[in-house]
Design a protein around this nucleic acid. Structure first.
Lengths: 338, 338
DNA sequence: GAGTAATGAAGAAGATTACCCTAAAGGACA
DNA sequence: TGTCCTTTAGGGTAATCTTCTTCATTACTC
């Protein structure tokens, strides 16, 4: 017993398909009596208009595609939550995909989502895509005229709506904050050294160094990947100099650093202050609770979705870039101001 | 400059649509020369077959719908990750929806996903749906013959493939574990008292009590909702009796309990042992690290996706229920065995 | 006259809708 | 009161969305 269609109903009542269509849509062109019989029959047989046919007819799917690099990262989950909220309020559903930081997977996903499946796209680029500047996939999308919003991990090579975090300022402000606390040697530990986001924060860090008249020491800047042993890396760092401030570029990194530092006998925040990026659940509940730079993930998601829906409805307005300011949530992992 | 279709190309070359279709699909029926010209033109103009039309033609979308109650819960993110992995390996994409524990939102989503949008569904029920046993939406789905897999929050009223956690056994084993540690008064703190999952774990808890010959004290069983003040509730609990073991039914609850208990001057695990459910990142990094019951979220997601894809390919095999065993990850929040 | 190569026409997937047709009813007018 | 014209109720036709596939239909060649 497969899905019932207008055709089946038409056959049953010996009327035309359009009559049935009008009947189920309660058109006044159909007599009360016939309409009622058809509607009852339709209901009894669980008739539902086939969405695929309607989508084809209307050239719209009321669906937006989202591609994030990593769903186990709480920041992206927050963004996703924000997107879903706004999308839902506007009658859209989201089809969410994970690029796993891989250009290839991102491209394949893009190809899947191209060509009618979605009304628009919200994307944060895979690290590989950013590093290698492989924009072919996105170019295709742009040429297909599919509304596109990039967030967080964006690219200057693509002209579209964007929602970004003011990462340069965040790096700058946070580093200055360390200095205000009295820190002398502030390390910068990044699992995303290759992404635009990581680079901007580093630039901010350097500017703060510069303004404070301190030399830039690249041995205090540590890039690592998932394959590396953070424990080992931190041990080199801590043996190199008397570190009294550490900036971790995402939540899990900050938490891991805290663990490692504590396990080596340092007191946080007395000996070492730690600040992390992305305010999630983790940072609140570790001991001591971590001072964090919040990027307002949910808010970013909401803005991205709003921007996209606006563009879907009005494709010709000029592109917009929304900059979301970060805020510092001071907790117990940074010593008090002197 | 909108999307180019076969028709447009046909018009350009003054040939029929079917010729173009065959040409772009590299059919041997078309002369080499014409084929090449058409293919070049198609490529130059970024022709892509319209997925909607193909979906309609093939009556398949290579998309599976997923509805989870809450995406900010790490367990569901893990499941989602597992689903995405298997789906992706099999050429499926996922359209993910959040029910926010609300029956109404779940129903609306179900309606959206019904009627052709997806090839199959993977769902964990909203708490409201479970409590009120409102199965109308799911019944519709079943009658539409859409392949369906329920996981974690399931219902006996619906006959379909299921992936469940052995929550009864988990509740039982964990409670027994507390007794083996020497605990006398084990509290049971649940934010999901109304869901099947919560009830099963409680039943296991009772069985362990029973076997140990201890009386069931319902003041040791605490149900609360997001609106309630857990701090206050815990204070009542701790004042009521000398609690020396607490079972928290999800990760964030366990972590919060740990915080509250510690802040009241108790030593964990010396005075009170704590065990939580769902092994995420939180529990590893709090101090002391929490002993957790792992439900293997990613594995559940993988199994659910496998089950669904199997059913899509073969709709007539009998329904299956996969039970996933939990495992206890002993860490520092439970005292040592005596 | 048969075989082959190259192309086109038509139908199918499912739904909507602008437009058309038919019959009966209503109204006007001599 | 009979005839003609106009309405309108009720329903059907066909176009449309895009693609693929099956089955012709040509025009050659041997």
């Amino acid at each position: 017993m497969k899905k019932i269609t207008l055709k089946d109903i038409a056959l049953y009542f010996h009327v035309s398909i359009s009559t049935v269509s009008k009947a189920v849509n309660d058109s006044h062109e159909i007599s009360r009596e016939l309409k009622q019989r058809i509607q009852e029959y339709a209901k009894a047989n669980h008739y539902k208009p086939n969405k695929l046919a309607l989508n084809l007819l209307n050239r719209s799917t009321k669906t937006i595609g989202v591609i994030v690099p990593n769903i186990l990262n709480y920041f992206f989950v927050q963004v996703l939550y924000g997107i879903e909220k706004v999308a839902n309020e506007n009658g859209y559903n989201i089809i969410s995909c994970i690029s796993d930081e891989s250009y290839e997977k991102e491209s394949k996903t893009l190809e899947f989502l191209d060509s009618g499946t979605v009304d628009g796209l919200i994307i944060s680029l895979a690290e590989e895509t950013q590093v290698k500047e492989r924009m072919e996939g996105l170019r295709e999308i742009m040429e297909s005229q599919i509304p596109l919003v990039l967030f967080d991990r964006v690219s200057d090579l693509i002209d579209c709506d964007k929602v970004i975090v003011d990462d340069f300022e965040a790096g700058y402000k946070t580093t200055k904050y360390f200095f205000n606390l009295g820190c002398k040697n502030v390390a910068f530990v990044s699992p995303i050294g290759n992404s635009s986001v990581g680079k901007l924060r580093l630039a901010g860090y350097k500017k703060a160094l510069d303004e404070a008249g301190r030399p830039y020491d690249d041995r205090l800047v540590v890039n690592f990947t998932a394959k590396d042993d953070l424990d080992l890396i931190m041990s080199f760092l801590l043996n190199y100099k008397t570190i009294d401030g550490i900036l971790g570029l995402d939540e899990i990194t900050a938490v891991k650093i805290l663990h490692i530092v504590k396990s080596r006998g340092y007191n946080v925040p007395k000996d070492v202050s730690i600040v992390g990026f992305t305010n999630g659940q983790l940072s609140q509940y570790v001991t001591p609770s971590l001072t964090m730079v919040s990027q307002h993930g949910k808010f970013i998601g909401e803005k991205a979705a709003e921007l996209l829906i606006k563009r879907i409805q009005n494709p010709d307005i000029p592109f917009e870039t929304k900059v979301v300011k970060t805020s510092l949530l001071v907790r117990d992992s940074t010593k008090k101001l002197q």
